[in-house]
Design a protein around this nucleic acid. Sequence first.
DNA 1: TTAAATTAAGATAAAAAACTCTTTTAATAT
DNA 2: ATATTAAAAGAGTTTTTTATCTTAATTTAA
Lengths: 145, 145
Amino acid sequence: MGLFSKTCEYALRAVFFISQKTSEGGRVSIKDIAIGIDSPEHFLAKILQDLSKRGLVQSAKGPNGGFFVDEITLRRPVAEIVEAVDGNGIFVGCALGLKECSEKDPCPLHNQFKTIRDEIHSLLRTTNIGDFNEELILGINSLKR
Amino acid sequence: MGLFSKTCEYALRAVFFISQKTSEGGRVSIKDIAIGIDSPEHFLAKILQDLSKRGLVQSAKGPNGGFFVDEITLRRPVAEIVEAVDGNGIFVGCALGLKECSEKDPCPLHNQFKTIRDEIHSLLRTTNIGDFNEELILGINSLKR
DNA sequence: TTAAATTAAGATAAAAAACTCTTTTAATAT
DNA sequence: ATATTAAAAGAGTTTTTTATCTTAATTTAA
C-alpha cells in the first residue's frame, strides 16, 4: 500500500502532466495524458471528470478540446487534489484506525504520527500544482515508470 | 485511506493488546482480543495466524491456550509488524506510484517524501512492541474506538 | 447543418481487500 | 481414553477499488 490510493496517484500525475503541457496555453487530450503518465485511459477519464467538476483542472469538449489548467489552478496547493480524491484521512486520521483517537484519548502511536501527518499536510499545502513545470519540461522529474 | 491497511491496523492493535495482557505471563484468547480492540473476530484470527507463523506473536492451542508474546518479541520493533502485513511500500515506495522513482530519476515529490518515509521508518524501527504496555495498563493509551 | 473530435456519463467487469463460517488439528485436564 | 478447549486451516461471501466498454452530449470547423 502506498501513501495514496492508486486513483490519487493517477490524479496527481495527471494534473502535473496537464499543468506542464498547458501552463503556457493549449489543451491536452485524455489519450495523451494517459500515455504521458502511463495510466489506464478510461479510468483516468473518470478521475479527471471528477477533478474537472471540482475545478482542479479545466476541460473543453470538441475539436481542439481537452484538459488544461488556468492561472489560478496553477497556484492551488497539491493538498487539494489529495483531499478531493482520498479525503483528509491522511492528514488527520489515526494510524491504528481508531475513530476517537485524540490528544485526550490517544492510541499508542498518536503523538509520533501526529507530527508526521502534520509534515505531510504542510508539505502538500505549501507546494502548488504548477511548481514542477520547469523540472518536468527539463526532464529532471518523471511522471511515468 | 489510512497510512496502513485495515488488516495492518488490526494487527498492530492486536499485538499491542496481547503484549499488554501477557508480558507478565498468561494467555489471551482471540475472542478477548477481538473484544479488546473492537475488531471482527474471525478476520483477526487469520491475521494472528499469519503473525504467529512469522514469530511476531506466540500461540498455544488447547485449554489455557491463546496468544501471548515472549521476552524477545517484546523487544522487536513495531516496523516488523507493518512490514509483515503491508510490506515495505510505505518505507520505500514512490508517492506517485512510479516503479522506477529514485534519486536519479525522481518523481516531482520524491525528495520531500523521502524525508517523510525515512521518518516513518525510523519511528517504527525505534519503537518496540512492548513499549506501550505501561501506558495501556494505566489507561493512558487506547486500542478501541 | 453536418461530420468529426472530444469530454461526460453510465453500465459492467475484474481484482483486491475485508469479513464470515465451518471443519480440522492439537493440547489439556479429567 | 475421552471430552473439552482453543488455535489452524480452508472455503466462501461481501464490499471496495481498479479498470473497461459503450453511448450521449458538446463543440468546432468545413
